[in-house]
Amino acid sequence: MSRSAPERSEENVEYRVAHLRDRLAAEELGELGVRAEVRAGAVVVTGTVPSAQCRETVLRTVHEELAGLSVHTDVVVAETATPDHAEELP
């Protein structure tokens, strides 16, 4: 019976996603709020970041770390509008 050689960690999608998360937290972003998950053969990256510049950096990092993989992103910038109503707490 033959057994295929174990995948190197950089070829394993789960570990690559874990390394992406480590890099987002460790580098200039300090970003812990972006979620990256493997779904149906693709990596889905979602979250809210503080600025458009952060969003660009996140997306660049995602595409560097996950090069060659199918990636879907939905990363939005935090909204800064004034609230239009208050919540009453009787």
């Binding site: 935090a78 909204e79 004034t82 609230p83 208050a86 919540e87 707490l89």
Partner: peptide
Amino acid sequence: VRVRNVAQPVIRRAFNVYHLHA
């Protein structure tokens, strides 16, 4: 006791306002 998570990504505003009548 009422609890409110006011993380900006959750409330999607600069802040939320709560009127306390207690």
